[in-house]
Design a protein around this nucleic acid. Sequence first.
DNA 1: GTGTGCATTTCGCTC
DNA 2: GAGCGAAGTGCACAC
Lengths: 237, 237
Amino acid sequence: MFGRCTVEYDGRAASSLGAGNRLLILKPDGTALVHTDEQRTPVNWQPPGSEHRAAVRDGRLRVRSVRENPDERLDVRFDRVEQVSALPVTGGRSVDVYGSEEDLRHRILDEPELVEPGFEPAATERATAAGPVDVFGHDDEGRPVVVELKRRRVGPDAAGQLGRYVEALARELPDGTEVRGVLVAPSVTDRAGELLAEKGLSHVPLSPPASSTTPSGDGRGSTTAPERSTDADDGAD
Amino acid sequence: MFGRCTVEYDGRAASSLGAGNRLLILKPDGTALVHTDEQRTPVNWQPPGSEHRAAVRDGRLRVRSVRENPDERLDVRFDRVEQVSALPVTGGRSVDVYGSEEDLRHRILDEPELVEPGFEPAATERATAAGPVDVFGHDDEGRPVVVELKRRRVGPDAAGQLGRYVEALARELPDGTEVRGVLVAPSVTDRAGELLAEKGLSHVPLSPPASSTTPSGDGRGSTTAPERSTDADDGAD
DNA sequence: GTGTGCATTTCGCTC
DNA sequence: GAGCGAAGTGCACAC
């Protein structure tokens, strides 16, 4: 729908938007989007799972989208509706993206020496008290190594994350076991580099492969993104 | 635009989407959005600042959106175009949101005893080697206190963040100065709670106010979001 | 332009 | 349902 409207939102936060011509998109999965002529992010929205209802109040069209947990409400009140379209969407809804962290993991499992000579991966997503470790293994002297993967340049948060994993594992293993931490990422910011140095962690500059190294049927990566796909085409509405 | 199309993306990552009917939104600021009938997030997109171009290739309409830094390209190739609309967007483009972290900060500056009795704020966004501290002040015994604000329930990352600030400040102040850290957030997860305990940090359960406590003209918050607004209405196209 | 952190983040997955 | 972390995160602001 396109037309002159006001928008009120109340839920996790609250907001109010004065009158103007905007695009309102209502999806059958319960998503609502209000777009202006700028930005990638909608000026207001409601997540999937909401319920849309339309009614005429005071002679004006009001579209209300509500969800629970958390309780949230979006009200779009139209002065004037310029256009309404019902669009029969079909075909694939999701894409396989290449160059993800998962691709970087495959790259490292294929060639562990990219981390360092003699590195031997033992597990992916290894559980620790601080959360799952991307790749866990041992160095050429048998010392445990925690590898944290990032597909892009990282800041201090990633250094902190790796530090938490290393610390959790050191606590879990026999007293005195030295646990090493390696951050694999294309690059790190200065502050991240300092943090790594402080904590005795290291950085290996490495990017995800340009195109996926994942064999199409790759077996057990505990997290292989399934491709949702709808093949029916051209329904009418 | 709505019609049957394929979508190819290459840039920070890469993806490919088979044929199907989708909605393509092109904004004058250079944003491009490809939406299916599910999810709040577009299946493909191009950020603001990109350049859109349309051309007929092999008898089919191709819309290409390109940007630099980083180099990214989005190609949408249409089999069939079901609908094209040019929509004259007008009115406000952004909203003031209530219930943000900034509102929580105002709440605390108004009533510092919400943090703890005797707490005295000294600065907001105080710079440290680890980054800016949300609220810096002193407790009833004059000890420096780092306050980190979160508008919603937090996980281990927030505990790590606060820990970094406390550590950076302790390093910066005279040797032996004890620096306290307080995480102000509605609640914390178990793991976050453990991390806080380990690092000797504390948690004060507090939420942003239900509606903004910010006086409409609030003066010097170093980050008062300006309301961009366009008042011209109903341009035609 | 890069760095840093907030966001009604969204999203997917595991427990 | 909650927790946890990735994302082509987007986005604004400071340096």
